[in-house]
């Protein structure tokens, strides 16, 4: 059986809100080490990979590996019933046909209990190679989100080019063109600083609709990490306490 408690429901609420526009059905793979999710969007262009290590929970117990097949829209409805500061407990039996969620306020004066019906999801599990990216960028989530939002008003796709000078986001649209150059911060200690590690300069073109969906994870972390190599999917990563939420997006490439 699974029993996993988070001190604050806000974490799971934010995670599920962040992925709900990217994927519809997900398997929560629960094991001794924590909860893992991998799901591909229906067009096979974007992939969500979530890791919640057992240490990130205030209580965690999982005797046997269980797969919980979850319809994301249904989980969103139930999580709306939790207050951000409530303690949240996930409970499931080994047969994995339902997930029980309890929400408890800090004074333990209110205990809410909801049951989510689970389903069998036939998801192909993809092998993501452990890649050393040619360029690694870490930048504040707000800055990344604003650029993605602004560029999406002009164009369907963005070109991200990275070299030692900085990272340049550019787009071409019917009304005109635009670009934003972000240079690496001189002081690393600054909050809101950008760091750029370039082994090989990289340039790739990506669909802005998906990137804007990924930006819904901006409430989960201060910074976003972009892992880029030529002509392979970009990794957009938000670090969590004891885990991560990663999105992968296949690039647009020449014939």
């Amino acid at each position: 059986m699974l029993e996993a408690k988070l001190n604050e429901a806000a974490l799971l609420k934010k995670i599920i809100d962040a992925i709900k526009d990217s994927v519809t059905d997900v398997n929560f793979e629960c094991s001794e080490t924590g909860i893992d999710v991998q799901a591909v969007d229906s067009s096979h262009i974007a992939l969500v990979s979530l890791k919640l290590g057992s240490d990130g929970f205030s209580d965690y117990r999982c005797d046997r590996n269980i797969t919980l097949g979850i319809k994301v829209a249904s989980l969103v409805k139930i999580l709306r019933c939790a207050n951000d500061r409530d303690a949240l407990t996930l409970m499931a039996d080994d047969n994995g046909d339902q997930l029980r969620l309890t929400f408890e306020d800090s004074k333990s004066e209110r205990v809410s209990e909801f049951v989510l019906k689970l389903m069998t999801i036939d998801q192909e599990h993809l092998g993501i190679p452990d890649t050393k990216y040619e360029s690694d960028i870490t930048m504040p989530v707000d800055a990344f989100q604003k650029i993605m939002r602004d560029m999406f008003m002009l164009s369907e796709s963005v070109k991200i080019s990275c070299d030692k000078e900085g990272v340049k986001f550019s787009c071409k649209g019917d009304v005109g063109d635009g670009s934003v150059l972000i240079k690496p911060s001189s002081s690393v200690d600054d909050e809101g600083s950008t760091t750029i590690a370039v082994e090989t300069p990289v340039s790739m073109e990506l669909n802005l609709k998906y990137l804007n969906n990924f930006c819904k994870a901006s409430g989960l972390a201060q910074n976003v990490h972009l892992g880029m190599s030529s002509e392979v999917p970009i990794m957009v990563e938000y670090l969590l306490p004891n885990g991560y939420l990663r999105f992968y997006l296949a690039p647009k490439i020449g014939d």
Binding site: V40, H44, I45, A46, L47, E124, H125, L126, G127, I128, P129, S157, E205, N207, V232, P233, Y248, A250, P251, K252, I253, G254, D255
Partner: peptide
């Protein structure tokens, strides 16, 4: 114009 690629051509099953 560049074409949208699929994840399936990068990540093995």
């Amino acid at each position: 114009a560049n074409k949208q690629s699929s994840l399936m051509s990068f990540f093995k099953k």
